[in-house]
Amino acid sequence: MALLFKSNIDRADWWRRELNKYIPDLEVRIWPDIGNPDEIEFALCWKMPHGELAKLKNLRAVYSLGAGVDHLLADPDFPRHLPFSRVIDPNLTGRMTEYVVQHVLNHHRFCQTYDAQQRDGVWKEHFAPFASERKVGILGMGALGSGSARALHLLGFDVAGWSKSRKNIEGVESFFGDDQRDAFLARTEILVCLLPLTPETENILNRDLFAKLPKGAAIINAGRGPHLVDEDLIEALDSGHLSGATLDVFRIEPLPADHPFWRHPKIRITPHVASISDPASVAKLVAENIIRTKNGEPLLNAVDPEKGY
């Protein structure tokens, strides 16, 4: 029984050890050293090169290494007929919640402004409103967005979320559907994007959306790089309509050295680290799905390829 593993982070041996705790006879093969492709029954991967999975004639299931699946569905030869799952894990949600809370607080308390003042030797106070007076909006209310919304509410922020359908989370106002998105944006001073990447959400963070936010709003994109139209963000920051941005995801990763985001004074960059799957936590879930695949049972956290999540 062989599983093909592919990640963009060098932790393959750690994943092998954790998976073998639950399935000792599972042979974990690290791409591109796959051996006989006909022996591979399962694939656990992140950003597998296009066409590679289609070569595996006896593949029985595919498991995304993270919460997102766009990296797999972008492959025109992806085997959409196979059982397919993603990671929904309390630790993954917890890590994203930490990231979102950290950077909402950064924007709320003018940290980018104080960083610039420190570089210039400027002593000037800026008074933030109470958290209850700061309106935070979360685009995308899946597991990651809902976890972040709950934490921000507990800190006292005025939190709302937007999603395709109504969500019932105590203390969090729910906006849903295309008809309610403009109202959601109009009340949002700090916008957090945690949407899945689908044809409907690609380029959603654009000049039209920014114009619907209040002047001085800030954005945090920890969803996917293609959500954001890069030049529209720079334009909105330079005009003063947006006050700042925190970006964890990009169209090209690593972000090219000559990209203007690196040098923009109102942009803070992190290298796609908001939430990373922990082998010690996720291996148990993957092992359970391998057993379910072998038994012909539905996968945990199954993905609908047509919806993209």
Rank of each mutant, 00 (worst) to 15 (best):
A12M: 04
A12K: 07
D13Q: 05
R17I: 01
E18G: 13
K21Y: 02
Y22P: 08
Y22I: 07
I23C: 04
V28Y: 08
I30E: 12
I30M: 05
E41L: 06
A43H: 01
A43Y: 05
C45A: 14
W46R: 00
P49C: 10
E52F: 15
E52S: 08
L53Y: 05
L53W: 08
N58E: 03
R60G: 07
V62M: 01
S64G: 03
L65T: 01
G66M: 09
A67Y: 13
A74I: 10
D75T: 13
H81Q: 06
L82Q: 03
L82P: 12
L82M: 01
S85Q: 02
D89K: 06
P90W: 10
N91G: 14
L92T: 12
T93H: 04
T97H: 12
E98L: 03
V101M: 03
N106W: 00
H107I: 00
C111M: 12
C111E: 13
D115L: 15
D115P: 02
E125A: 11
F127K: 11
F130V: 08
F130T: 15
E133H: 00
K135A: 13
K135Y: 00
I138H: 07
L139F: 10
G140N: 04
M141K: 07
G142W: 13
G145R: 02
G147C: 14
S148Y: 13
R150F: 05
G156R: 06
F157Q: 12
V159A: 09
W162R: 01
S163F: 05
S165A: 09
E170I: 02
S174F: 10
F175K: 10
G177D: 09
G177W: 07
D179V: 14
R181T: 02
R181I: 06
D182G: 11
A183M: 09
A183L: 10
F184L: 02
L185T: 03
L185Y: 12
I190K: 04
C193T: 04
T198M: 02
T201L: 07
E202Q: 14
E202R: 14
N203E: 15
L205N: 09
N206H: 15
L209C: 10
P214E: 01
P214W: 03
I220A: 15
I220F: 06
R224T: 06
G225V: 11
L228M: 03
V229L: 14
E235G: 05
E235F: 13
S239L: 08
G240S: 04
H241V: 06
H241F: 15
G244S: 01
T246K: 07
E253P: 15
H259C: 00
H259I: 00
P260T: 07
F261V: 11
F261I: 11
I269A: 01
I269E: 14
P271R: 11
H272P: 14
A274T: 11
S277D: 03
P279W: 11
A280Q: 09
S281L: 06
V282K: 13
A283R: 08
K284Q: 10
K284E: 05
L285N: 00
L285A: 05
E288G: 15
E288C: 12
I291H: 10
T293Y: 08
K294L: 04
K294Y: 06
E297R: 10
K307V: 10
K307G: 00
Y309I: 11
